[in-house]
Structure formats: structure tokens, C-alpha cells
Amino acid sequence: MADFDKPSSTEEEYFAREDIEKKRKLALQQADQLAAKQREDLRQLHFMKCPKCGMDLHTLKKGHVELDTCFNCKGVWLDAGELEQVLAQGSENNGKVMGAILNLFKRS
């Protein structure tokens, strides 16, 4: 009867491998969660900040385009596809939109 109480070495190896696999999956899951949190923290830190001077960006709507502008360094930042929209509006209005945008940042 003593033989039935004692697990075989292959059984011990199986459970040891299962335990290691569970710990590995848990570690990978924790690493993924940490990476996601770090990405979100970086996004919050840099979201709507001027890449040139670090001050807050403000959104100005000109026509159908929203321009991210920095009133500190007078920078204008465009998201993907916005330059094409500005140029298209400029050609439709004979350059009036682009002229209005440039007038925003003229120094007094």
C-alpha cells in the first residue's frame, strides 16, 4: 500500500512542468500589463504637448481642419492627413484658408 501513496517520478515531473508553465504565463501576462501601463503613462505625459517647447497645445478649427497650435513658440502641428486637407481647402478658396492660418501666427 505504501507504493500507492508515493507519486511516481514522471508524475512529479509532469506537475513540476505544469507549475513552471503557469508561472511563465503569469510572468508574461504581468509584463504585458506593465508595458501597456507604461505606454498609457507616456501618452498621458506627452498628449497635446508641443514637441518643440513642451507647452500645452491648443486646437484651433480652421475650415474642416483642426490645427494643434502652441501659443508659446507659435508652432503649428498637423495630424496625419491634415496637411492635404489644408492644401485642398486653400486651392478651393484661392488660398484664403492658408492665408488666414498664417495670419494667426504673425508677430505683432
Rank of each mutant, 00 (worst) to 15 (best):
K106C: 08
C70E: 00
E18Y: 03
Q89D: 12
G95M: 02
Q38F: 01
E18V: 13
C50H: 05
D56K: 13
L87H: 00
L87F: 07
Q33M: 11
G99L: 11
H46M: 10
G54H: 05
N93T: 15
F47K: 06
R43T: 07
E92F: 02
C73T: 03
E12K: 15
L67S: 03
E12R: 15
M98N: 07
G63E: 04
V86H: 02
K74V: 04
E12F: 04
H46G: 04
L78C: 08
K52T: 13
Q33D: 12
K52L: 11
M98G: 00
E40A: 11
G90H: 05
D41W: 06
E12C: 08
F71L: 14
E13Y: 04
E40C: 00
K74S: 14
A100D: 12
F15C: 00
L60M: 11
G81V: 08
I101P: 00
T10N: 14
L45I: 06
R24S: 01
N103P: 05
N103E: 12
D56Q: 12
E13H: 04
F105K: 09
R43E: 05
G81N: 04
M55W: 09
N103K: 14
D41P: 00
Q29S: 11
K25L: 11
Q85C: 05
H58V: 11
F4T: 15
L67F: 04
A36C: 02
L28H: 06
P7T: 00
V65F: 04
G75V: 02
R39D: 09
A100I: 01
N94Q: 12
S8G: 14
K22Q: 06
C50W: 06
C50F: 03
G81S: 07
Y14D: 02
L67H: 07
Q89P: 00
S8A: 14
G63Q: 04
K6A: 10
A16R: 13
S9I: 12
